[in-house]
Nucleic acid binder design. Structure first.
Length: 156
DNA sequence: GCCAACGTTGGC
DNA sequence: GCCAACGTTGGC
């Protein structure tokens, strides 16, 4: 079982939006970065747990927990000319881009801000701190434990 | 809204 | 296959 951090701009898709889904499951689409794609296509497994992170706002933060309910499959938005994520190089034979399905789990009691993460020495090596642009990142088990504890939940 | 970091593209 | 130009992300 692995842990991940997924970034999203809340103006585009927020943790509350995930909560509102009827079946509480949602395709995580639109990722257009090869390193993140490789995680989606090859590594992420059903049951893996996700830190849901809000970026590009005044106070970026981890706000809740989600879980993986379907492993990587072709991202249909890349094949749809009407989608803002359309990629003319993608085809059903060579989809290029992949997505996974996620399900809402629980909100943090207290959000864990990027600032708080930066100020916590054991978290200093997280890609979030070192390579902030990667939108799908692995999280070490120790890092997961520290962050959910800071957030006031068990993460179980 | 600015700009640094960095990933991608394309000419050579 | 190098690398300059360009586009995007995301913190501030």
């Amino acid at each position: 079982m692995n842990y991940w951090l997924f970034k999203t701009e809340p103006g585009c898709f927020s943790f509350d939006d995930l909560k509102k889904r009827p079946k509480m499951t949602e395709p995580w689409d639109g990722v257009r970065n090869f390193q993140a794609r490789n995680f989606l296509r090859d590594t992420i497994q059903i049951g893996d747990l996700v830190l849901f992170y809000h970026s590009n706002i005044a106070e970026p933060a981890v706000v809740g927990l989600a879980e993986i309910v379907r492993t990587g499959y072709p991202d249909t938005t890349a094949l749809n000319p009407n989608s803002e994520h359309f990629d003319p190089k993608a085809s059903p034979d060579k989809p290029i881009w992949y997505m996974v399905d996620v399900r809402y789990r629980e909100p943090l009691v207290r959000v864990v801000t990027l600032n708080a993460i930066k100020n916590n020495q054991p978290l200093a090596d997280m890609p979030l701190v070192k390579r902030s642009r990667l939108s799908i990142q692995p999280v070490a088990a120790e890092e997961w434990q520290i962050i959910v504890t800071m957030g006031g939940v068990t993460g179980q």
